[in-house]
Nucleic acid binder design. Structure first.
Lengths: 255, 255
DNA sequence: TCCCGTTTCAAACAATATTTTGAAACGGCC
DNA sequence: GGCCGTTTCAAAATATTGTTTGAAACGGGA
């Protein structure tokens, strides 16, 4: 057993491993990632993975938890300051944060890339990931959208508008390579994120404004009494990702 | 050597392999696909892959070519009939066809899923794929968008609007699982494709109409002479994907 | 029927990846 | 310094996956 009372060393190794693992899993996903590449990237011995994390699956779990912790801190899509803004500006801020995650650096934020891989080719961690990472983001977005669409918007109205916004953002996670290959002029612009954020925010806000006008025009036209807005589920950013068995596609696994 | 003069049998085996390979590569991508699973799915012997296609890489190439051929026939995004429509309806048709590819059946059209994997974790076939599959689609879209935005639209205007539309569509390729998990009510609707197509078409057309009005309003306001529309590159749907070395991440490979 | 090229097959093989092992190195503490 | 739990390491054992092999089955002509 390891890490009993006060372990001094070794946590440096663990950290290096977690960071290298984040890179590798982000690039290739769980199945195609190779632990030899991870330990090489971390500059640690091959056996360290099993010693510290019990195996590839354990390392994956730990990496998810580590990244989730990290995401809570950087890239906030919720905070008291944000909530103090007008809904339009909350929306603009949300768009911008998401684009930063995807396009802000040479590589997307690793957790985002891992989510992408999970969506394409899920591991047993899929449920955890959706609940812990995607869901809070989408809930937060839906909350903003609801405020923008006004009290007459139905659940489906909110869902569709959220979907439109979310999809225009996640494109730059999944399709970043396509974007760079097909729109080199745009992609090379040092202010890509700002331009895209401006465009996407404007397009979505315009579409939502149109929807709202239509909804309220309908109301005036039909003289229907306003339905009360449904209570909104609180959108937390928190992520836990407690360890749980997660492994290879169909093989045996340690308890 | 195989398949000399007139090979009668064996092409059934090849077809079964190509179809099973399409499923497997679509699910897991090249690296994570296992040829044992492919031959099981095809109900053929393990050695058949090497006998007929020379190896995993050869099978991947052949699968891409096979699927590209298939895509040319089903799911057309271009045809004389389509071109006879008004731009708005061409756009609606384009949106609908793409959603059908992604959501129309239990699984997305395999070539689309393979493109998705290539975008996340490219193999050497990436260039081919983008050129042969994504590019023609995006070119066709850009053509329609240009018609909708009118002669005053700049290249960037067209690019941004195309991007908005494309991203709302590709979301349902990459994020299908997320969509189904987070919007179960919408996803369960037997007419999802129609509802989404209607919503997305309407949202995009509204946004583009707004852009056009702004562009033309600017013109009137500034009394600037109209620039001529740039000639548009012809957007073909054709795909070739001629065989070429395609293989594992960094290892040696047969000629 | 027999011949012969083609295709299939089970089994062996080779290459790649993951996990385990046992010994050595480290670091605080007596 | 010498002990002891922790951590590292190179090497070996396993497991998994891709490729090869040699023999057998097939099927259309001579």
């Amino acid at each position: 057993m390891h890490r009993s009372g006060l372990a001094t060393a070794g946590i440096a190794t663990e950290l290096r491993l977690l960071e290298a693992a984040a890179r590798e899993f982000a690039l290739h996903g769980f199945a195609a990632a190779r632990i030899r590449d991870i330990v090489d990237g971390a500059g640690v011995n091959l056996a360290a993975v099993n010693y510290h994390f019990g195996g590839k699956g354990g390392l994956y779990q730990a990496t998810l938890a580590h990244l989730a912790r990290e995401a809570r801190d950087a890239f906030p899509v919720d905070s008291p300051e944000l909530r103090a803004m007008r809904p339009e500006d909350q929306f603009r801020a949300y768009v911008r944060v998401m684009l930063m995650r995807y396009l802000g650096q040479e590589h997307a934020f690793p957790l985002s890339s891992i989510v992408a891989h999970e969506l394409l080719d899920p591991t047993p961690a899929f449920g955890q990931i959706v609940q812990g990472v995607s869901r809070p983001q989408l809930d937060r977005l839906a909350e903003i959208v609801r405020a923008l669409l006004g009290p007459r918007a139905s659940g489906d109205d909110v869902a569709l508008a959220s979907l439109s916004a979310a999809s225009q953002l996640t494109f730059f996670l999944f399709g970043r390579r396509l974007f760079e290959a097909q729109f080199p002029a745009l992609a090379a612009d040092p202010a890509v994120v700002d331009r895209l954020a401006g465009h996407i925010s404007a397009a979505c806000l315009a579409a939502m404004r149109a929807t709202r006008e239509q909804l309220e025009g309908e109301r005036r036209a039909r003289l229907t009494p306003a339905r009360p807005a449904r209570a909104m589920a609180k959108g937390e950013i928190g992520v836990d990702l407690a360890p749980q068995a997660v492994l290879r596609r169909s093989s045996s696994d340690s308890p």
